[in-house]
Every structure is written in structure tokens, then in C-alpha cells.
Design a protein around this nucleic acid. Structure first.
Lengths: 338, 338
DNA sequence: TTGAAAGCGCTACCAG
DNA sequence: CTGGTAGCGCTTTCAA
């Protein structure tokens, strides 16, 4: 039984190919009787419409580009992709992943050699910023641009993002309110030409500290761990080299918090006994490591973004193109009041 | 500047569309002069050939299906996808991910309603087994089937897998040889109708123990943690309920080992002081948690599999269709001789 | 409610 | 080495 095409179904059902096509995509406009005949024949022949033919005819590509910085294997990126896939794939779209767009150059590369001309129905950007000129290129092609956790919504047709600043502000304020007075924030160095949403979290931490240093005898500092190094080791040594060990550590991401929790214990700094630890993400292992952290849900953001994409491709109007996704502080076992 | 099509380029370059097409796909058969003209025009107009048209014409789809059990966010699956993507995407292929194929039913679902007829040029299966009849379906359509860490190579056109049994056998033997006498293996329960490559690891552990129980006074047991439960908690309580705490714990995957290492320490069982811990995978956090583990490299397997897929689609003959990927025991800080 | 037919953009065959 | 052209499988007017 070779691959059945629409004509095979038409012949088997004794109708025209036009009717078969209609039955499959607009079943309500064909008669009950015809519909049954066609459906039966299609099922019997195991017919699947060819996406390529459909795409060509409709002037679409049924492909969507996803731009991520860093690796696909990171918790955030994999979660986003999973969410996107769960709605886009059933809708007939494939996702083309462009990863490691983590400097201005590779980003420019993408937008220049862009397979977008005729090969992408929408572009989704996760977690980083895009330049104005690059947005224009898409605009001219009429291709929707949707952001997930983008630092600025300007230029995007739609977006769904958490408030990174507010999230870390909440975490730091919580620590201060529960009696912590020596706070350290651990994060990676930023890339100048590339604003990434996670970089914003530092502002939240700093703001919370500034707001409280009047009323309390607060000490705080930020430790920047260079990228592309053995980050845990770097953070660990910086922390252990401090004159006085902090009573609270805020991490830019669980990725820092999880190993530090374990490694610091080896050096006698046990959380929550000796200090409190708060992460950000609520990613893999956060729960089983009993890490108090700020939860975001990238998979859901992927789902939301995918639906926006579908609507935009469809030409629908979005009442609220830009949404803020909820975050919450998950109180677990890595902190305790001082 | 609207989307340029091949005719635009042809006109701009003063040649026929046939020549443009040839220049782009078989540059060696057109004259130097023509080639330059065409290339220049294509670049100037920012021309990108339409994958859909190309696919339709060539009777391909330029899409490849990836079947995974569980979630896309698991370390193994995300790594495989990353590897596949790194070669398939530049080759013009999109990857359609079908996840959660984790029981016989969803697998049957896939193979029946398969978008494969005309919409997939190859099927890649990661980590689980496929039934004979389902393989036949693909065979009839002439669609290559490639496996990554599949329990049996039978029926697959090509595969790249590690030897799970040998890997865990190596880990257990290592522990026995370094003086451990009370071994526990922690793994999740198997799904009857669904042989998964990681399930094979148990055999390696058991075999190693059996081989050595004559010469040593060995105690060993296997703890099966039910799926879909809070696995760390289950494993933890089982371990702590043991009459005598083991001097070595082998985990089916780092996913078990990483949190257990941390949680057990909270109960006074500190590795490597009180017991040795060995994992499997060398996934996220293994290194920073100083976990001794069996390393596999799914990303590389993805790359290898992708190249096999490309060759098979191309009709090339594979000298060694089935390959075994290397594994190695990474000695780190979670174990010590007894 | 259905059918005939044009044509999406490209490739590859065949002529020249 | 280059051009003309058929046709991949489908959708969608337009007519009936």
C-alpha cells in the first residue's frame, strides 16, 4: 500500500479531489453523505495530506523559528520548546530551532541569512533582546515576532514574560524581612551587546537592598561569575573567600543554587542552619533539593506564546498581545528566619 | 522588498529559472560567468529557495520525526535533540518531536495516524523499543528507521547505542573491587509493554553481584521506585528503612543520585565518608556534585544518528549501520574504597 | 453542494 | 552549458 494521494481518495470515494480537500478542511460545507464516503475512503487508504503541497499552495511554510541563546539543553529552553511543541505540533507546525544566538554577531547572522523568507511563518525569541533593525526586516516580510521573557516588548507583536526584576526583588525582600542582614547575590557576568532577561534580576536584588539599608544595618554585595568558566567552582571560591560568610545567598538561577547548596555543606556551611539560600526558576531538582526559589513556568509560557503565534499567523486581533506570566516564591527548606 | 522567488532571480540575472536552480544546487555544472551573475542576483534579492516547493517537487518532506518517551525536558532527550538539530537543521531538515510515547498505546497511536506518509523522511526512535509490525509499516513506505539507545537493533536500519548492561556492570564491579559489600541498586519500575534502554542497566548490576557473591560475602538488593510518584522521596524512605545502611548505592540514573546525595547527607549518611554513590549518565550537575558516574554522551549520539539518517535518505550504503557508543566511568568524589 | 481547473515555487528531464 | 516545460499534491476560486 503505497502512499495515497488526494486523487486516490477521490477515486475511491467517487468524488472530485476538490471535494476531498473540502471534506478534510471544511467538513461543514459538504453533505453528510459525501462526508462519510470521503472520510471512510481516507481512513481506509491511510491518507495524510502533504504538508509541503498544502504549504506551497497556501503560501505558508508551516514552520516556525525559535531563537534561543545558549543551549537547547538548558532547563528553560527545553521547557519552552516543550510547551511550544505541545500546541504547534498538533497544529501542523514544525519548529526550527536556532540555538546559541548568544552574541550580537550570531543574531545578525540569523537575521541576514534568515531562512525566514518563505520558510518561516513566525519567529519566536526566547529570553533575549532583538535589535530594532532586525525587527524591521521581519515586519517587511509580514512575519509575526513573538517574545518569551524578552527584556523589552517594544517591536514584538506579542509576548509573554515574567517580571524578573519583581521576582528577585521579592526574594531579597523576603530574606531581609525574615531577619537576614548579610546578603550576597550570585550571578553570571552579562554580555554587553546582548541583554538577556535573567540579567534583569540583579536590579531587583539591588533595589530591595537599597530600599532597606536605611532602616537596617544591611550589608550586601553582588558576585559576578565569569561565563564560560567552571561557574560553581568560581562562585564557591568567591563565597568562601569572603571576610564574613553571608547569612543569605540569592542566586540568579537554581543552576547556581543547587550545586552550591551541596558544595557549601561540605565546607561546613549548611543551609538553612548557617545561612539561607534562595534560587530562581524552580527548575529540575529544586523541589527535591528542598530549595526555596522563585517559580516561573516556561512550559506554560511556551503554550501561551504558541497560541499567540497561531492567532497572529491567522491574522486575528489580539486583545492583550503582551502578557506577564505569574511567578511565586516557593518556600521550602533552604532558608530559615534569623 | 517582498519575498523574492526564483523567477525574480532569473530575470535579474538574465537567465532562466532552470539555470538559477542549477546554480544553487549543482554549481559545478554551470559556467563560471553565469554562476557569478546568478549568485550576485540571489544575494542582492535575498533569495531563499522555498523548502515546500523543493520538497513537493522532490517527493520529500524535509521533516524528520523524533520519537521520545517521557518529556522533552529530560537531560537525555534534550541532549539528543540538540545533537540531531546541529546536523539536521543545517541540512535543511526540521525535526518533528513526538513526546511521551511511553506506553504501547501512544506508540500504536503514532504509527497509525502517522504523519509519516508523505510528511516524514525518516523516523528516529530514542531509548525505547518498537514492535515488529510497526517497523513493517515504515519499511513499506521506504522510510528509514534509526535508533538511539534502543534495546534491540533488530528491524532498525541503523542505530547508535551504548551498552547499558556493560555500563552498569562496570560500575557495580568497580564498587565490589574497591571493597564494598552491601550494595543497593535504585531504579524505577519498568513498564511491561515498553522496554526502555535504561531498564537494561539493572541486569548489569545483578550480573556483577552474582559473579562476585561466591568469592565475597556480598549482600545486595534492588529497590524499585514506582513511576509517577515523588521518586526521590520514595527512594529515600526505602533506603532509610533498610536494616543496615548499604556501603554502596548504584543509581539507574544521575537523576536519582544527585538528590539522594544531598538528602541522605541530611540524615547523617554522607558520601563518600559513610557510603559510596555511583550514578549513570553524567548529566546536568553530575560534575559539580562531584558524582562518580558512568558517562554517556547523548548529544554526540544525536550527531551520529543524524548523519546516518542523512545517508539513508540519500540512499547511501552504510558500512556499519549499527554502532556502539563509548561509555566511561568518571571517577569523582562520591565514592571511596572501603 | 460539487466539479473543473489554475497555479503555488521549484527541479529535472529533454532539446538544443 | 543553458532554456523550455511538465508536474510534484494540494487548495480555492468560479461555474454549474
Amino acid at each position: 500500500m503505497a502512499k495515497a494521494v488526494i486523487r486516490d481518495v477521490a477515486e475511491a470515494a467517487g468524488v472530485s479531489t476538490a471535494t476531498v480537500s473540502r471534506t478534510l478542511s471544511h467538513p461543514e460545507v459538504v453533505s453528510e453523505k459525501t462526508r462519510r464516503k470521503v472520510m471512510e475512503a481516507a481512513k481506509r487508504l491511510n491518507f495524510q495530506t502533504s504538508r509541503s503541497a498544502m504549504a506551497l499552495k497556501q503560501g505558508r511554510s508551516y514552520r516556525i523559528a525559535l531563537l534561543i541563546n545558549q543551549q537547547l539543553t538548558s532547563w528553560f529552553n527545553a521547557s519552552v520548546l516543550m510547551g511550544l511543541n505541545s500546541v504547534l505540533q498538533p497544529a501542523g507546525y514544525d519548529i526550527t530551532v536556532y540555538q546559541d544566538i548568544d552574541d550580537a554577531e550570531s543574531r545578525r547572522d540569523f537575521f541576514e541569512t534568515m531562512p525566514v523568507r518563505g520558510n518561516t511563518d513566525a519567529v519566536i525569541v526566547a529570553s533575549f533582546d532583538v535589535e530594532r533593525g532586525q525587527i524591521e526586516q521581519l515586519r517587511q516580510n509580514g512575519i509575526p515576532l513573538v517574545g518569551i521573557n524578552v527584556p523589552r516588548t517594544e517591536g514584538f507583536d506579542a509576548s509573554i514574560s515574567i517580571d524578573d526584576v519583581a521576582g528577585m526583588h521579592m526574594a531579597a525582600t523576603y530574606l531581609i524581612n525574615t531577619g537576614h542582614r548579610r546578603l550576597v547575590y550570585v550571578c553570571s557576568t552579562t554580555i554587553p551587546s546582548m541583554t538577556c532577561s535573567t540579567d534583569l534580576r540583579e536590579q531587583g536584588f539591588i533595589r530591595a537592598c537599597r530600599e532597606n539599608e536605611g532602616s537596617h544595618d544591611l550589608q550586601w554585595q553582588v558576585i559576578h561569575v565569569p561565563r564560560n568558566t567552571e561557574v560553581t567552582n568560581e562562585a564557591l571560591s568567591s563565597l568562601l573567600a569572603l571576610d564574613e560568610f553571608p547569612d543569605a545567598i540569592c542566586c540568579q538561577a537554581d543552576m547556581f543554587a543547587v550545586p552550591l547548596l551541596y558544595r557549601l555543606a561540605r565546607y561546613g556551611h549548611v543551609a538553612p542552619r548557617d545561612f539561607s539560600m534562595v534560587g530562581f526558576d524552580d527548575g529540575t531538582y529544586a523541589e527535591v533539593m528542598q530549595l526555596t526559589t522563585v517559580r516561573q513556568h516556561p512550559e506554560t509560557m511556551g503554550v501561551v506564546a504558541a497560541n499567540k503565534v497561531l492567532a497572529l499567523i491567522n491574522g486575528d486581533h489580539l486583545d492583550h498581545p503582551h502578557e506577564t506570566a505569574p511567578i511565586q516564591l516557593m518556600l521550602r527548606g533552604s532558608d530559615s528566619p534569623r
